[in-house]
Design a protein around this nucleic acid. Structure first.
Length: 616
RNA sequence: GCGCCGUUGGUCCAGUGGUAGGACAUUAGCUUCCCAAGCUAAUAGCCCGGGUUCAAUUCCCGGACGGCGCACCA
């Protein structure tokens, strides 16, 4: 049994997700979330918002998905997001033209060369296809940019691009965002929303798509002063797969604590380590199986140009399924699945803010006040432009600038009667008097610094998939096979289902309606179902992961005692009889992520029913 | 993008040069007091375009989509 096929089949049949636009044949890389999937995704985003925005004291924004070309010129996506491909005329293999060139010539950074030059290099060096050794000389080099381009406004308009990561929307707005943070570091800005990449070859269902949802946190820090609150996470256990282990043939992932990994230098950045610790708890909360989870460090060659240290959170999917009975101990041997990146933790330094500052001319800095104002002596000139102007004509301004530069570098030069400066290669001589040299005493209250950025970037869709696949179970209930999703109640699309045990008794139908209303009034997402046998209805809910089923039976409405209903727990199929007037409060408490209460609390407080149903 | 394989009700499959059948699911009714398979009935399908043919779901070509491999994944 391959879990991935079963999960995809279930996802289609039960409305979690499916390829979009099927009526028109579909287009690769786009998926629609059905009712259950949309609800799970929404729950996951809420859990993320709770942990990474609210609990971290960060602020969330929502920026446009389309941004003008200039943004991506600055971010480097316009150039750096390009791949140069050359296709072999013999065997049809596509190769990275820039990589081929770098591997076979002395050229470095071939990626930054224009296409015609790369074509020329291929010809000059008679580069050959690495697969079949056919000559590539004369073959065209195609450029492929992974960004979706569009046109803003009527006519040809101005070029715009769908953002390839939500992060740019945060970086670009930094000048205002820092105001909202009252100009104090550190602060964090989050965003949850779609991002777009025109993948060459979308694959693996919802794992690799062209439109996907990211949840990103950009933490802006003062690299010299700000430290993460490591004490919060130092004892958190994590499974790490550092670069050294990946490069060692016998290397493997191991378990340690965040604190120890930082202390030993395995994790290079305190901030990255901190977020690994925070994220670890969050993954557990949303139901990622920790036996199929690890943090993997990027290999040196894999690092983005701006990143000093980078770790991915990865989950293992597509492994042969595990039976429910063995899922607890995790001892069952499993065929290996694919490790997929579900989050990237990057130390982006000041790369992004500096680039946007450079290209936009705006200030992407924060003014950092010194504890004590500094008094410094500063050499300055105040050239007499009325003299310089007539003397140097159009060069006068440049001469004045050169004098200032000289004053900073070599104040003693102004002791002489004349000073010499160089402008555009020409030596210019100026009377020292004209320069009006002086040494001023100025008070500096602080400095403008460009914050560094620490970024955890979550791929929501892949986490949704992971959570569903890791929750996928099969077992037997009363000797009948069952498929169910052991989703955490916080993630489940539906909180509870309500059934009249049989549909030929109006008392049961009426009370079931009433209970449904009560639960919905309490804010629960409730499904009502009176169709088919009771077992069938339980299975329907099991299969989409509804954690609790409430059944109205005749025993509960007969007699003089207050009406009762049965509450069934999904995974164990155990049941407890609860008074109707209590059921909304009890379920609400069971479903509250803040409340550790388990089903046992119900069986302790009320009568558990001997169902005689066995799960195995 | 390249190569190989595939595409038949909602889902999973069988099958055919003369427009198709099952299972599960769904709906209606019967039955039914707790774990999918009791009874009756109903709904629903040959990926798209072109070609060959009297006739194409079937054969051929192209495309789309999916799976795998290569490449790609900043």
């Amino acid at each position: 049994m391959v879990a991935q096929e079963d999960v995809i089949e279930l996802a289609k049949r039960r409305g979690f997700f499916f390829g979009a636009n099927g009526a028109y044949g579909g287009v690769a890389g786009f998926y629609t979330y059905g009712p259950n999937g949309a609800a799970v995704k929404d729950n996951l985003e809420s859990a993320w918002r709770d942990r990474f925005t609210v609990r971290q004291g960060n602020m969330e924004i929502e920026a446009p998905t389309i941004m003008p070309e200039a943004v991506f010129e600055a971010s480097g996506h316009l150039d750096g997001f390009d791949d140069m491909l050359v296709e072999c005329p013999e065997c049809g293999e596509s190769h990275r033209a820039d990589h081929l060139t770098e591997d076979n010539t002395d050229i470095e950074e071939a990626e930054s060369l224009p296409v015609p030059e790369v074509e020329e290099l291929i010809r000059e060096h008679d580069l050959r296809c690495p697969s079949c050794d056919a000559a590539l000389s004369g073959e065209p080099v195609e450029e492929f940019n992974l960004m979706f381009e569009t046109s803003i406004g009527p006519g040809t308009g101005q070029p715009g691009y769908l953002r390839p990561e939500t992060a740019q929307g945060i970086f670009v707005e930094f000048p205002r965002l820092k105001e909202y943070a009252r100009n104090r570091l550190p602060f964090g800005v989050t965003q949850i929303g779609p991002a777009y990449r025109n993948e060459i070859s979308p694959r693996k269902g919802i794992i690799r798509v062209r439109e996907f949802t990211q949840a990103e946190l950009e933490t802006f820090i003062d690299p010299e002063e700000d430290e993460p609150p490591l004490h919060e996470v130092e004892d958190v256990e994590v499974t790490l797969y550092p670069a050294t282990e990946q490069e060692d043939e016998e290397g493997e992932a191991y378990t340690t604590t965040v604190g120890e990994a930082i202390e030993k230098g395995v994790i290079g950045s305190d901030w990255v380590g901190y977020y690994l610790g925070v994220a670890q708890g969050w993954y557990e909360r949303v139901g990622v199986d920790m036996d199929r989870f690890r943090f993997r460090q990027h290999l040196p060659g894999e690092l983005a140009h701006y990143a000093a240290d980078c770790w991915d959170a990865e989950s293992e999917v597509g492994a042969a399924g595990i039976a429910a009975g063995s899922s607890g101990d995790g001892e069952e041997p499993r065929d290996g699945g694919d490790w997929i990146e579900i989050t990237g933790f990057a130390y982006r330094s000041d790369y992004d803010l500096s680039k946007h500052a450079e290209h936009s001319g705006e200030s992407f800095t924060v003014f950092k006040q010194y504890d004590e104002p500094k008094t410094v002596e500063r050499a300055a000139v105040d050239p007499d432009m009325a003299t310089l102007g007539p003397e140097f004509g159009g060069d006068a301004g440049a001469v004045a600038d050169a004098l200032q530069t000289l004053a900073e570098r070599d104040p003693d030069a102004f002791d002489a009667n004349e000073v010499e400066v160089e402008v555009d290669g020409d030596e210019m001589t100026v009377d020292s008097d004209v320069a009006n040299f002086s040494v001023e005493t100025v008070t500096e209250n602080g400095e403008h610094i460009t914050p560094h950025v620490v970024e955890p970037s979550f791929g929501i869709d892949r986490i949704v998939y992971t959570v569903i696949e890791h929750a996928y179970r099969t077992d037997e209930v009363d000797d009948e096979e069952r498929t169910y999703l052991a989703l955490d109640p916080e993630m489940a699309a539906t909180d509870a289902a309500v059934f009249p045990l049989v549909s030929n008794d109006d008392r049961l139908l009426d009370l079931a309606d009433e209970v449904t209303g009560d639960l919905r009034a309490a804010g629960l997402s409730v499904e009502y179902d009176d169709s088919g046998s009771i077992g069938r209805r339980y299975r329907r809910q099991d299969e989409v992961g509804t954690p609790f089923c409430v059944t109205v039976d005749r025993d509960g409405v007969e007699g003089d005692d207050p009406d009762t209903v049965t509450v069934r727990e999904r995974d164990s199929a155990r049941q407890v009889r609860v008074p109707v007037r209590e059921v909304a409060d009890e379920l609400d408490a069971l479903l509250d992520p803040e409340d550790d209460r388990a089903f046992d609390a119900l069986t302790a407080a009320y009568d558990e029913i001997e169902t005689g149903v066995e799960t195995a």
